[in-house]
Amino acid sequence: MAIEIQGLNYVYMEGSPFEKHALKDVNLTIGDGEFVGIIGHTGSGKSTLIQHLNGLLQPSSGTIKIGDMVITEKGADMKKLRQKVGLVFQYPEHQLFEETIYKDISYGPKNMGLSQDEIDERVREAMNYVGLSEKYMNRSPFELSGGQKRRVAIAGVLAMRPDVLILDEPAAGLDPAGREEILTQIRALYLERKMTVLFVSHSMEDVARAAGRIIVMNQGSVALDGKPAEIFSQAEALRSMGLDVPQITRLIDELRRRGISLDSSIYTIEKAKATIQMMLANKMNREGKEC
């Protein structure tokens, strides 16, 4: 489902000394089935932006169209919108409340007014997507580890079968293994369900690996927008916004500076590893040595 944002402005606490212009004239078009990473410094407006996309915040001015639904109009059907656009907040495990995992995941589908059979099917499907085995179904969500809790919370949103999935820092605060697992699952889900995915993060590594397009927010505006290779080639601009390129890009840049000819568009460890291995193999072949 495509998203069209035009002239979006949002001002927090208008008319008080705490007034803050959080979004300034944001224009964006996100195509159906895109995987977009949104990055930006703390306070750059990324969280404010995504909360507009399922109607939790109403803009001070501007319009947002999701699919063929203009959600900024008065009287727009918020219930229908929230089924289409699933939003997973930062630290979603803090919103768990039910006695069992099954009940918690079924909260969303139940609010949609689905039949018991349909709910049951969706809960099982969602648990499967996030890699939770069915034996957890009747356990309390509060007994689980942090990473597992988070997966329950994400399943709670997936069970609503949204067409657009928005995740705010889904890997924040997890250990490297938990991080890896969540990101892999999101990626797999994207490929299988063909959803539009918006992924907010300030980890360059995570965004670099997962997203096909990156939007950089700075002080409430869209500063950069493009393919990962294009974004990460602008290291200076990123640094001036309090961001950085992935570590591996820095390494590649340093190697290039020392005269080793490498492709400048490398931003994932896998690609860097493959390229360097190939280069070394070629070098050894040329020098006639055995590996």
Binding site: L87, Y107, M160
Partner: peptide, 8 residues
């Protein structure tokens, strides 16, 4: 907000 996003 989070619960509203889940249809509350």
């Amino acid at each position: 907000k989070a619960q509203k996003a889940r249809g509350a």
